[in-house]
Design a protein around this nucleic acid. Sequence first.
DNA 1: CAGTAATTTTT
DNA 2: AAAATTACT
Length: 479
Amino acid sequence: MSGSEASAPALVWFRNDLRLADNPALAAALEGGYTPIPIYIHAPEEGGDWRPGAASDAWRHRSLAALDSTLRQRGTQLRHFVGPSLVTLQAVVAATGAEAVFWNRRYEPAFERRDARIKQTLRGQGIRVESFNSALLFEPWTLQTQQRGPFKVFTAFWRAALASWRTEPCLPAPGAIAAWEGGPEGVPLAALRLRPQRDWDGGFWKEWSPGEAGAHQMLEIFIEGALRGYDGQRDFPGRVGTSRLSPHLHFGEIAPWRVASALEAQRSAASGRDIDSALRELGWREFAHHLLHHFPHTPERNFNPRFDDFDWARIARDRLEAWQRGNTGVPIVDAGMRELWHTGWMHNRVRMVVASYLTKHLRYHWRHGARWFWDTLVDADLANNTLGWQWVAGTGADAAPYFRVFNPLTQAEKFDADGHYIARWVPELASLPAPLRLAPWRDATTSRRLAPGYPEQPVVDLAAGRDAALDRYRKLRAD
DNA sequence: CAGTAATTTTT
DNA sequence: AAAATTACT
């Protein structure tokens, strides 16, 4: 390919695979002897009801900038376009004489449909089109029960996955990449308007470094740090106990098999329990993607249709807003919601707690919570978000006991006993003694004095909320 | 078809 | 220790 005659160009269409290492589509273009033309197409409306939210856009802006800069270091660059995707691909193919288009697959229903149509159309026009796996350890059609159906139970799913462990090989990032001169340049990144209009995301970037380098750094930090003790520590939101890889994985800045192999490489240095536990979390991510592929209606509708008749409460604007803004009067819930608002991320344990409070105590349909998370999380991911919310609401794949209602106080006592996490995100509670910090309503006088402005009572009383929820769940069971 | 296992919980 | 239900083998 280094000869004097230029090789034919191929488009490498970047989507949620914003990396150069472990990128099968890019590797295929290079191996095929093509000159890659890296492109990104902004077409948010093609996500249907799930066009990316503001936090996601803010992350993507930075991740695209990082990708472009690493491509430039190698001699080429990323061209940005504003969609629609098919029309754009056709135009760029026509203008550059590209002979092939390569991309890595996505599994969201809207994108599966779109990509199938694009693939068929382009092939019909005589263009070579290939898609690859970049996002998963196991693609949804590679694992099935012995009855040849999709798994609906995580444990069985993960057992089968471990038994047939075969993941993609780790590929180093390519060195120099020849540039293709000519053809449409596209628009500047800024023209995609992914950046927030107002500067509300300032707090994010102290915590996060979007892009492939940031992803690998985060993995390194995890392997060197929180992996030891992960199994026991990952549930404590006030400690650095998790990998914090979720946004990096969502945008494909790092391959899941790269993470898995880095974990496996620690077998002699870290405990098997911690490693297995971390791998299992990757497994939940896999499971979520499989479920979304096989049950594409679940972002909208209950996985378990029995719940279609469930008696959700009518939304009261101010109550929903109290939850969104972290003003419910339940400290662990408010801490989580404010962490989300300030950093674009929330600890997983707390996600379960706030989701339970919304769907059980407030008895609001899980889709209101799913929507808020979608708009505010930097790791917003349709598969993970859908599984998570349906799991907590009890409408999901698991045979959930209807009485699984998280008690936010018990959760706080177990996982934030010293109230450090709460104090960090709800500073007006910081001057309360720790036990009261978890439940300020226990001493209204002291709380009023030391934490003025914080709600004196939860919007929904913990015991009453639980009872009311159980009541409705029982009712559902009756018929 | 029956037995097993599960489920990041609660009181 | 018990609350309940389902998937999977």
